[in-house]
């Protein structure tokens, strides 16, 4: 019997990163700007996507990937708005990964898309570890999760490109402070843009739309 040690050095998370890089190149080749919308369960991800699709639909050709343990419900809501929507059932998984996105991209006519919105599974933990091929990572939390939610999940706020503190209209009712949450995000990430939003505050919704528009246009300009 021969014993033998084999050095491998294969990183299973970096394998995902590599595939994500490939997805990103593929998206760029087709002129698509992609956003990964992560966030707590029920924080308002689908709602923010619906609003963005409605508002920005004239300006950009939009497609949506709706990832969830059971994806058809959110996908149904978005498809009603008349944009290409691909439900991605993650089954037992609590996040989208690059492989699932690679597969979903095959069923989208990317040549006719400017903006791809990807709703991740409601979860502030593992989506942080998985790149999908996105150009921008958004994390959405709402005041109803309690205003210590940010500090409990430092990694996702450190690695995101935009933080949205949503449902600020409910802050008082749930004894939470959107300002404290903003402060906590700032402590974790000195440069990240932070929006405090509510669907009842149209000014904040405009900020959300313009954050997306500016980012898409910055890619187009190169």
């Amino acid at each position: 019997m021969l014993m033998h040690v084999i050095n491998i050095g294969h990183d299973v998370l970096k394998a995902n990163d590599k595939l994500a890089e490939k997805n990103k190149k593929f998206l760029e080749k087709n002129g698509v700007f992609a956003i990964n919308i992560m966030g707590a369960i029920g924080s308002g991800k689908t709602t923010l996507i619906e609003k963005a699709v409605t508002k920005l639909g004239e300006k950009f050709r939009i497609a949506v990937i709706a990832g969830d343990v059971v994806a058809d419900m959110d996908a149904g809501r978005i498809a009603k708005l008349g944009v290409t929507t691909i439900p991605v059932n993650t089954g037992r998984e609590c996040h989208l990964d690059a492989k699932l996105v690679e597969k979903a991209l095959k069923s989208i006519d990317l040549k006719n898309v400017d903006l791809l919105l990807m709703e991740n599974v409601g979860n502030l933990i593992c989506p942080a570890d998985y790149r999908l091929g996105e150009h921008m990572r958004v994390v959405v939390v709402s005041v109803t999760e309690g205003d210590d939610i940010v500090l409990k999940h430092p990694v996702i706020f450190k690695t995101a490109d935009l933080a949205v503190i949503h449902k600020k209209d409910l802050a008082e009712a749930v004894f939470a402070s959107a300002e404290k949450m903003e402060h906590d995000v700032r402590e974790l990430n000195a440069t990240i843009p932070i929006l405090k939003t509510s669907i009842h505050d149209s000014v904040s919704m405009e900020q959300w739309f313009s954050m997306i528009s500016t980012s898409v246009e910055s890619l187009k300009k190169g």
Partner: peptide, 13 residues
């Protein structure tokens, strides 16, 4: 710091 790497395996041939 975000590694998850199979460093080595020890096999019998």
């Amino acid at each position: 710091g975000r590694d998850l790497v199979i460093q080595s395996i020890d096999i019998e041939q």
